[in-house]
Amino acid sequence: MSNSNYAGRAGETDIKIEAIDVRKTFSARGNGRKDVNNLTTDALGGLNLSISRGEFHVILGPSGCGKSTFLDLVAGLTTSTDGTILIDGKPVTGPGPDRATVFQQYALLPWRTALGNVEFALENLEKDSRKRRETAVKYLDLVGLGDFCGHYPFELSGGMKQRVAIARAMAVGPEVLLMDEPFAAVDALTREILQHDLLRIVYETGKTVLFITHSIDEAVFLADRVSVMTARPGTIKAVVPVLLTRNERLSDDIKVSEVYTGTRHKLWELLKEEAAKAGVSG
């Protein structure tokens, strides 16, 4: 699987995640501002998107454009004001073990060891505590933390914490991995290593990934396709395929390749406008 790209071009493959005209409106709390017309904020304004099975899809957008709102909707943590999100053709009604989320702030339980944190995710799915432990160890091995099972979060570096969080997400056996700026809080070097390892794990396991970032480099390096979002109310401005094979990404230094720099430039052009708009309005 790691030799080929994900299953193929749109149209030929089946759709894993589909968002149809998704809108989300928050009732604003004012924050002391006398609002102009009404007391609501449109976070998402009719977002349409299809993601294929096995695709690594990155959503790129300026801050405050509603990226995380969209991810929460796919995760089933909130409900949309209008429109539907389908997974395998069925509407999302709430959280489920077919999806797992990795949060930017790690979200590890400080009173549990790395192993305990991964086991936590399995407590509703697997009754047998011995099997839980086995599964947890297996996934900590997968993310390269086999030797750190007994360590508490405060004993781990930021990158290691995020590895534990990835292991926890993978352990529930999801088909879709939702990642909300997972590497934004770690240093640049660690981030590159984590990105590389994430690709390896995703390619080995064939998960569909929905990944959110505001870093263009991260988007180009990871994504099979990148969706650029508009400033609020967020919609998809353009979907840009990244024409690099999965093998190239893992083996060569693709960051100097023409495809990489070209895609990077294209995304920058698309994003520039929206970033300016977001800067003015928010």
């Binding site: 943590l77 959280p95 797992a100 989320t101 949060f103 979200a107 009173w111 407590e123």
Partner: peptide, 29 residues
Amino acid sequence: VDPTLVKMSRSLGMSKFQMFYKVLLRGAL
């Protein structure tokens, strides 16, 4: 208690009661 922990346990499909005694109670200790 860190709200992301609550969000995390909700994303794992935990019930309100489970969240209460596994995350909130333990976190408040």
